[in-house]
Design a protein around this nucleic acid. Structure first.
Length: 475
RNA sequence: GGGACUGUGGGGUAGCUUGGUCCAUCCUUCGGGGUUCGGGACUCCGAGACGCCAGUUCAAAUCUGGCCAGUCCCA
C-alpha cells in the first residue's frame, strides 16, 4: 500500500517516492549521490542501453572501453576543459600506503583518457572518420542535492567520441548524432527540444554544444543529452593529426555525443502518474505481466492457461512475467501499475474457458488477447499502447511552453518560455536573472510549436538578427 | 564556500520542550498458520529501531560535545 505524494503540487517528492516504491533504485548506500541499481532498475537500464547501442551502431560507431583513471598531466592538457571540471573531479592520490608520483583522476568524462590514444591510432586520412563509443561509469563530485538518476556522483554514461577530417565532416557527424538521438527518443517516447547552448554554457573546451531538454513537472527542464563540436580544440593539445592525400599534416575535427541514466529519470518523470511509473514498451523490464485469477474449482485449469500464454509470449520474444504469487488479483494490479508494466493480461475462469485473456494496458485501455494468437495480439496491443503514450506525452510537451513578450513576464513562470533574443550575452544574462534559471539557447530544429516570426529582443528591444530562444529552470 | 535544520524497526511515524510513566506508539513491511481470492482481504501467532563515539546524571530516545549521514536556503 503505497501512497504517492501528489504529482502536480509536489513533483519532486512524487518522483523520489516513485523511484523507491517501484524498486528502481536503492538510495540507502550511505554515500551522497551513489545509489544502488536494484534488479528491476537494472533491467530497465539494460533496455535503455540496448536502444542507445542499436541506434549508434546503426550509424557506424564501434564500441570501445578506456580505463577509468586518467593521469593528471593528460587531464590538464586542454585548458578550458580542466577549468570546467576542476571543481568536481575525484582524485586518486595513493597506491596502497604510498603517494602516487602522478595523481590520477577518476574520469568525469573521457576526452582526456581517449585522446592521447587517438593520437596514436590516427595516422592517415584513411583512418578517418574514427567513430567509437563506450558505456562506462564516470564520476563527478556533485555538491548540489543529488537525486536518483537525475543528479548523481557515479554516472552511467554513454559517450561517443569521433575524429573527422574536416570541420564540415564534424558538422555532418553532429547532424548524424542529432538524427540518432531523434530515433532513440522515439523509442523512449520522449518529446524534447534541441537547442544550441549559449557560449557561456557550452561544454568546457567545445566549439559549440547542442543539448536536448525535456520539460519536467511544469516549469522545470531536464537536459537529457548533448552533442558537441570540438573543432580542433582537443586535437591540438593532444596532437591528433593525420596525413592528408596531398601529404600535409592536419589536425582532426572532433565531436562527442553524451547520454546517461538521466534518460531513465526523464522517462519516469515524463510518463509517470498518480499510480506510479509508466514505461514505454522498449524500456519496460517486463512488457507484459500475466495475473491469474484463482477460482475454487477451476484453479488448476486457470494456472495451466496462464502458463500456456506465458510460454507462447516467451517464444514470441516478449519480456513476460507470470505473477503466480498467493496475493489477491487487485493487489497485483496495483503492484504492477506502480512498476509501470505496459500490459496486463488477466486470466480467470471466463478467460480460461474462452481461451481469450482480458488485456488492460497501463493507460487503462481494455482489450482481448487470444491464446492462439497471443504473440501477434500482444505485439499489436503494445504498439497501440506506445502510440497512446506518445500522444499523451506530446500533449503535455506542447502545454509546457509559452511565449514571453517581455522580461517582466519571466519571473515565477510555470512554463518553459519561448522568447526573442538578439544573441548578445548581456541580454542572455538578463533573461537568466529574470527567470531565475537558464537561457537554454536557440532551437536547432524549430520550436516545439509554430510561433511565427520573433519580435524585438525581450531584453534590449533590438530588432536586427533576433531569433527565438528558450528559457527555463533546469532541475 | 556561508547559514539553517534533520537523524527512532525494511519504509513512514509518536515520544524529545519539562530526563524516570519507554525492555519505546501507531500504520506499513517481513516470517508462519487458517479462511479467502474478477481492483489494495480477514484473522491468529511471531520478527524487527532510538546514526556513531564520548560526556553530564542515581537515571538519557530525551541534555551537551565531536563525528558520520542526509535535507533545505544563500553565494
Amino acid at each position: 500500500m503505497v501512497d504517492l505524494p501528489d504529482r502536480q503540487s509536489a513533483f519532486i517528492d512524487w518522483y523520489l517516492a516513485v523511484v523507491e516504491a517501484a524498486e528502481l533504485t536503492d538510495k540507502r548506500y550511505g554515500v551522497k549521490g551513489l545509489n544502488v541499481w536494484t534488479p528491476y532498475g537494472f533491467l530497465a537500464r539494460r533496455n535503455l542501453d540496448a536502444v542507445m547501442v542499436r541506434e549508434i551502431e546503426a550509424t557506424g560507431s564501434k564500441p570501445v572501453e578506456f580505463p577509468t583513471l586518467i593521469p593528471a598531466n593528460e587531464f590538464a592538457k586542454e585548458k578550458e576543459h580542466i577549468k570546467g571540471f576542476d571543481a568536481e573531479v575525484y582524485w586518486v592520490t595513493k597506491g596502497g600506503v604510498s603517494d602516487l608520483d602522478v595523481p590520477l583522476v577518476l574520469r568525469p568524462t573521457s576526452e582526456t583518457a581517449i585522446y592521447p590514444v587517438f593520437a596514436i591510432w590516427v595516422r592517415s586520412h584513411k583512418d578517418l572518420p574514427l567513430n567509437v563509443y563506450q558505456i562506462v561509469n564516470v564520476f563527478r563530485y556533485e555538491t548540489k542535492t543529488t537525486r536518483p538518476f537525475l543528479r548523481i556522483r557515479e554516472i552511467h554514461f554513454f559517450e561517443e567520441h569521433t575524429c573527422q577530417a574536416t570541420e564540415d565532416d564534424a558538422t555532418a557527424r553532429v547532424r548524424s548524432n542529432l538524427e540518432a538521438f531523434r530515433r532513440m527518443a522515439e523509442a523512449f517516447v520522449l518529446p524534447y527540444v534541441a537547442t544550441r547552448r549559449p557560449d557561456w554554457d557550452k561544454f568546457p573546451g567545445a566549439f559549440y554544444s547542442i543539448a536536448f531538454d525535456t520539460p519536467i513537472g511544469g516549469a522545470r527542464t531536464l537536459q537529457i543529452g548533448s552533442v558537441h563540436h570540438y573543432r580542433e580544440n582537443f586535437a591540438g593539445p593532444y596532437g591528433i593529426q593525420y596525413e592528408a592525400p596531398d601529404g600535409s599534416q592536419r589536425l582532426v575535427h572532433q565531436t562527442t555525443f553524451g547520454l546517461s541514466e538521466r534518460l531513465l529519470g526523464a522517462i519516469i518523470a515524463v510518463h509517470g502518474d498518480s499510480k506510479g511509473v509508466v514505461f514505454p514498451s522498449s524500456i519496460a523490464p517486463y512488457e507484459v505481466v500475466i495475473v491469474p485469477i484463482p477460482h475454487a474449482e477451476a484453479g488448476p485449469a486457470i494456472l495451466r492457461a496462464a502458463e500456456e500464454v506465458d510460454e507462447a509470449l516467451r517464444r514470441a520474444g516478449r519480456r513476460v512475467h507470470l505473477d503466480a504469487r498467493e496475493d489477491r488479483p487487485g493487489a497485483k494490479y496495483y503492484y504492477w501499475e506502480l512498476r509501470g508494466v505496459p500490459l496486463r493480461l488477466e486470466i480467470g475462469r471466463r478467460e480460461s474457458e474462452s481461451r481469450t485473456a482480458t488485456a488492460v494496458d497501463r493507460l487503462g485501455h481494455r482489450g482481448r488477447v487470444s491464446f492462439d494468437t497471443a504473440g501477434a495480439d500482444v505485439t499489436e496491443r503494445l504498439r497501440e499502447f506506445d502510440r497512446a503514450l506518445a500522444e499523451r506525452a506530446m500533449a503535455g510537451f506542447r502545454d509546457a511552453f509559452s511565449v514571453a513578450q517581455a522580461l517582466s513576464e519571466l519571473a515565477g513562470s510555470d512554463h518553459v518560455r519561448i522568447l526573442s533574443w538578439c544573441g548578445r550575452e548581456e541580454c542572455g544574462h538578463q533573461v537568466e536573472n529574470a527567470i531565475a534559471g537558464a537561457l537554454l539557447g536557440v532551437p536547432e530544429d524549430g520550436l516545439p510549436w509554430e510561433a511565427g516570426a520573433p519580435g524585438p529582443c525581450v531584453a534590449c528591444g533590438e530588432t536586427q538578427g533576433v531569433r527565438w530562444a528558450l528559457a527555463g529552470r533546469p532541475i
